[in-house]
């Protein structure tokens, strides 16, 4: 992979130039949290941050979107999507891995054309980060990216080492050549030191060996209902998860009682009506069953279907849980119980 160097002092200018001809999205301060939002020249781009509240999925699977309009006599009209080129700047490796997982769901097999349109028009510029006490991407193997980005910037002090992941990414460099320099041996050494230093900073760890097998065995564990006693079923873990993609579909009718729009909106398997079906039967009536579903889907079902866990270790679910549920701890407890029963 070709690498170049972007002096830190040139980043501001690089972003300002990218904003010409592209819709540019950058991490910014929003109240007490960090949020991906549209860039304008007065934007204060935050290059050192832990995690945005909502992951970048909101740009590909919007929280609520109209899919098509309908009207008697006119039939269906699909909502047009913008084709303007868009750049998402500042995605951490976990969030890029999150998009990879969403791609598997929305682009492989049955293609979701709404997602595809948003994905096709978007370039990804990744950015390195250091973990806090909730991060466990190195446990999930999502602390590095080798593809699914156009450029990736690693902060090495005064300079960014820039990995080029696509021809379109390469074009961004060629169009702004005056801002970049060639890689030096010193920088490559610094990059290796950065990786080694970073890997020592993780406090949160998750042993993923055999995890999906263990979860399958622990279907009936009392842990689920026990943990769910704390669960507010508020759905915040689902909304903030980079790979939770469930949505509900409904019609919004106009006051003529005939025309309207078919819409979809994010939902969560933690909500009581999620598994409610016609006739009034609910497949997951208890909070414990619903919490189990969320964890099983991430760490077991996704492994079975896609060969890879849907958890990218970003830590959002546990960082944003008002009840203080730590998903790593829940999984570790389940493992502990199973090893005891095997020995016993």
């Amino acid at each position: 992979m070709r690498t170049v160097v972007l002096p830190g002092s040139n980043l501001e200018e690089f972003l300002a130039r990218l904003a010409v001809g592209h819709e540019l999205i950058v991490p910014q301060k929003s109240g007490a949290s960090i949020s991906f939002a549209a860039y304008d020249p007065s934007s204060e781009v935050v290059v050192e941050y832990q995690r945005t509240l909502l992951p970048p999925k909101k740009f590909f699977l919007p929280p609520e979107e109209a899919l098509f309009d309908f009207a008697p006599g006119e039939g269906f009209r699909q909502k047009p999507t913008s084709s303007e080129r868009r750049i998402l700047f500042g995605l951490h490796p976990c969030d890029i891995h999150g998009l990879r997982r969403l791609d598997q769901v929305f682009l492989e097999g049955y293609v979701d054309t709404y997602y595809q349109a948003q994905r096709d028009r978007t370039l990804i510029i990744g950015l390195s980060c250091l973990p806090d006490e909730m991060c466990f991407c190195n446990s999930m193997g999502t602390d590095l990216v080798t593809d699914h980005f156009d450029l990736f910037l690693t902060d090495l002090g005064d300079n960014y080492l820039v990995e080029i992941g696509s021809t379109e990414g390469n074009d961004l460099i060629l169009d702004n050549e005056d801002l970049f320099a060639e890689t030096s041996d010193i920088l490559l050494r610094k990059y290796k030191v950065f990786l080694a230093t970073r890997s020592n900073l993780f406090e949160q760890k998750l042993d993923t060996s055999g995890l999906s097998n263990i979860l399958a065995l622990e279907w009936d564990s009392s842990h689920w209902e026990e943990t769910a006693k704390d669960c507010l079923a508020c759905g915040r873990c689902s909304m903030t998860c980079p790979t939770c993609y469930c949505f509900t579909i409904f019609d919004e009718v106009n006051l003529d009682g005939a025309s309207g729009s078919r819409c979809r909106r994010w939902t969560s398997c933690l909500y009581k009506n999620y598994a409610l079906v016609a006739g009034g039967h609910n497949f997951r009536p208890s909070r414990g069953a619903r919490l189990r579903q969320r964890i099983m889907h991430k760490h077991k079902d996704s492994v079975e279907r896609h060969g890879i866990s849907a958890c990218v270790g970003c830590g959002r679910c546990q960082a944003h849980c008002a009840a203080g549920i730590n998903f790593c701890q829940v999984l570790t407890s389940l493992r502990g119980e199973s090893s005891e029963s095997i020995v016993g």
């Binding site: 929003s30 109240g31 007490a32 949290s33 949020s35 509240l53 909502l54 929280p63 609520e64 507010l232 079923a233 508020c234 759905g235 915040r236 909304m239 903030t240 994010w266 939902t267 969560s268 909500y271 009581k272 009506n273 944003h320 849980c321 008002a322």
Partner: peptide, 18 residues
Amino acid sequence: PHPVCLECTIRENNCLLQ
């Protein structure tokens, strides 16, 4: 059927309960 938290999180508000 959703609680206020769905729309609150979508608006990227910090959690006041937390």
